[in-house]
């Protein structure tokens, strides 16, 4: 039995005539300890998929199973790193993490909680900024706080919704390594949603493209057979990497093309001509 399983999941928003089907017939299974990446265009329903898995949303039909049990609500077993960090701006870095830790360990005393907070803040290298508020931090630092907050709750599975989407290339690379480092330490199950194929290949064991919505559905999976730890610079010359990368991009491009050609609508240009203001 798979660790996380989605069976024939459909998700629609709205009712009656305004109904739009965002996700259609999603089937996915993830094994324990696996690192899976889902790649897709922006607006293809990735965040909806994440919210179905973490329990913020419930599918219209079909079921989401986590360790064989149906997901009906959020759970501390599944930690979430949100796309827009979602730190609480009135709390400091330490307080943001502390809030999560206290919920995850309601029975532990304060010194244990404080120790755990400083441990995880230290892990993401933010000890000097522990008393700062989110708005005093850079984007990369904020995302690290979000990572520390999610991991400090000791989830069995980490769900990341485009966690590095808003960051510059350099910070992005650093954080990718940090996340991989943390993941490899205790081999938690991880699900990464991203729009960057290279990021997916560098980090994941398997990549599954999400065909763009409405009626988004998962495409065929691509296994990444590159040994870990992966070296980013050497990766560019790796034949396997090139092959997988080209295959995925080709697949995604093809979907893009077919989406374009499938639209039969013709756009008529309005007949306008420049008006002379001189005469």
């Amino acid at each position: 039995m798979a660790y996380l399983e989605l069976k024939n999941v459909y998700k629609t928003y709205g009712e009656g005539a305004n109904q739009t089907e965002v996700l259609s017939n999603i089937n996915l299974s993830i094994e324990e300890g696996e690192f899976v990446a889902i790649v897709g265009f922006t607006g293809s329903g990735k965040t909806t998929l994440v919210n179905l898995i973490n329990g913020l949303l419930r599918p219209t039909s079909g079921e989401v199973l986590f360790k064989g049990k149906r997901v009906v609500d959020t759970s501390h077993e599944r930690g979430v790193i949100f796309q827009n960090y979602s730190l609480l701006p009135w709390l400091t870095v330490g307080q943001n993490v502390f809030m999560a830790v206290r919920e995850a360990y309601p029975k532990k005393d304060k010194s244990f909680l404080k120790k755990r907070v400083s441990e995880y803040v230290d892990m993401v290298g933010l000890t000097p900024a522990i008393n700062k508020r989110p708005k005093e931090l850079s984007g990369g630092m904020r995302q690290r706080v979000a990572v520390a907050r999610a991991l400090a709750m000791n989830p069995e599975m980490i769900i990341m919704d485009e966690p590095l989407g808003a960051l510059d290339a350099l910070t992005r690379g650093n954080l990718q390594d940090e996340i991989l480092n943390i993941w490899s330490q205790d081999k938690r199950t991880a699900l990464l949603i991203t729009n960057d194929v290279d990021e997916g290949i560098y980090m994941a064991d398997r990549i599954i493209p999400l065909k763009p919505g409405p009626k988004a559905t998962l495409g065929p999976e691509f296994k990444i057979e590159i040994d870990r730890p992966r070296d980013k610079t050497a990766l560019n010359d790796n034949l396997n990497f090139k092959k997988t990368r080209n295959a995925i991009i080709e697949y995604l491009m093809d979907i893009g093309e077919s989406r374009k050609s499938s639209s039969s609508e013709e756009f008529k240009l309005p007949e306008v001509s420049p008006k002379s203001f001189v005469a």
């Binding site: 913020l56 949100f82 919920e103």
Partner: peptide, 8 residues
């Protein structure tokens, strides 16, 4: 959403 995920 944060409050829900942290199960406050």
């Amino acid at each position: 959403n944060v409050a829900k995920v942290l199960k406050l």
